[in-house]
Design a protein around this nucleic acid. Sequence first.
DNA 1: TAGCATTGCTCAATCGATTGAGCAATGCTG
DNA 2: CAGCATTGCTCAATCGATTGAGCAATGCTA
Lengths: 338, 338
Amino acid sequence: MTPRVTLKTVAAAAGVSVSAVSLALRDNPRISEEKRAEIKRIAGELGYIYNRHAANLRTGTNDTVSVCVNDLRNPVFAEFVTSIEEALRESDRLVLLCNAHEEEEVQASFIRRMLEQGSNGLVLSPVAGTRAEALREVVGPQFPTVLMSRGLDDDSFDQVVNDDPLGLRLAVQALVELGHRKIAWIGGGQDTSTARRRFAGFEAGLREAGLPIDPTLVLPTAHTTLEAGRRAMIQILDAAPEVTGVLCFGDLLALGAVSACRERGLEVGRDISIIGHDDIEETAYFDPALSTVHVRKRMIGRTAAELLLQRIDAPFAPPVSRVIAPRLVFRGTTGPAP
Amino acid sequence: MTPRVTLKTVAAAAGVSVSAVSLALRDNPRISEEKRAEIKRIAGELGYIYNRHAANLRTGTNDTVSVCVNDLRNPVFAEFVTSIEEALRESDRLVLLCNAHEEEEVQASFIRRMLEQGSNGLVLSPVAGTRAEALREVVGPQFPTVLMSRGLDDDSFDQVVNDDPLGLRLAVQALVELGHRKIAWIGGGQDTSTARRRFAGFEAGLREAGLPIDPTLVLPTAHTTLEAGRRAMIQILDAAPEVTGVLCFGDLLALGAVSACRERGLEVGRDISIIGHDDIEETAYFDPALSTVHVRKRMIGRTAAELLLQRIDAPFAPPVSRVIAPRLVFRGTTGPAP
DNA sequence: TAGCATTGCTCAATCGATTGAGCAATGCTG
DNA sequence: CAGCATTGCTCAATCGATTGAGCAATGCTA
């Protein structure tokens, strides 16, 4: 093993001090242009590799941002993470990733781990059941943290969320205008702000339309998968065949519901209307294409990254909360009530 | 700002030396059971946070594994990353993530960055056009590296790949047995081993069946999105309306192709048969559900993680290459030739 | 009971970049 | 030309955990 090339090695070779090398390599103007060029040349020739550990120890950070989401296989989260990563690339920060899979312990241990690691900040989609105080306990009082997609009832955190109530109220309104009166709700069985807020929007929409909230038409599901949607839809059709409109917590659920309706011989978009939520890319290509609440995922991801960078620069600034408005997208799974 | 709680703080509070605390916290048996318990208790009360930077500087590593894939929004990669992360959780390593987006420079700078960071190893799906020597140049001669999904013609790297040629030969065989003679190929316009190997499998399958390779039935696409599939399919239908079988580089392309056929009034599964590749979850719920080549994604991700851990433990062991066999899944988009 | 091993800790050097303080040389101003 | 600022560098402390060497106390063996 050849001994490591450090600042010291370079300094000796260049006949200057260690500090001079350190400053020169970072283009500090206090070192003259020529010296800087020479030092860089020598460093290059010697094959100097910057040791971030030493710098990290000294500076206390490590130019890393942590992102913890529930499940990357959910295209919504994949889109969030992708746009965060892109937004951070300019600030030369790497992304530390975690899939919490709704397990609070995984989330907590990731947070501890990335704190040890000296990560600069955290973008978090808290697992179901996360309490704000418990989270604050884990991340510590002033650690730059931005909640994304799922908020918490605590305004000490920066947050970026989709306007869930709005999206669902719009969806209910749309169905009502199409003449639907028996409208079902599938999903949101998790203990998350998203689940609560979407359901609240559903309820508010019905209330505004003067419609009753029928418990047999509300079917929370533990998961948000295609299969869960299929099962829930079958259950609803069995319990309340008169239903003509269905709103779903997520697109995957909605696609499952579509497939269940078809199994039962219903033509979706004519016999029954279904609206999903999120607008993941795939849904546009189903036949009939899925009507859905379009969530501005890239915007949310980018905003989360921006807020986090701001927070890192100004740890004591007042917390910011951003609510991104969704819009309704009509495709083939909605139509006038039969 | 309260001053940081370090080993020193804890040592002072516990009335022992810094070393004792360091050893105790890591359960070194050279410190007595009782002292260890007491030290841990005090550390906990003081809110001691382990500073990995100091340890990293001292030990030279940082218990991190880097993963670089092309695009997380592709469900296949999301699945890979998820299973790698799960597999690594036991070894208490964090995942540093990068989406290279087919840009060699992004890939290279990520690699340099994570090397500085002291990452323990790399799982890489090389961007299109990556040459083995160039990659070796960037990662250095002995850095633990596992290529995943996309291989390189270089046996100095560990590799885990799907058996692409096999999958496509099986798919061609299946269509031929169903009576298809005019079989098209959509996708794989990228300069990746995957693209080459799948196309090679397609060609081999035709050859085995004694069928000619018709250039008008081969349509490489630059992207593997739904939209790209739709466009390619339209082009093929225009140029060669007699086509009855279509193989696609990926499921998204295939779904796009399905949607294009439908626009043209063709009933997929009867008038024309389409087979995708990868078997992403959504495809099973399309109507008709997509027939596809099922790639064992979790297996590939887990295997990549395992190989990497082995490689980290034994940097000089001979390189390992794993080929994971896919299987054909028949659903609704395939049927006898009309 | 001398001699040696073991136990249980402490000491202090170490990893390598960063940075505030400091200093010599030069330029500039009044 | 004294006095001050600026330029261009050096000095040395510092971040905090790790670890080989060392040492005192105790136990064990011959």
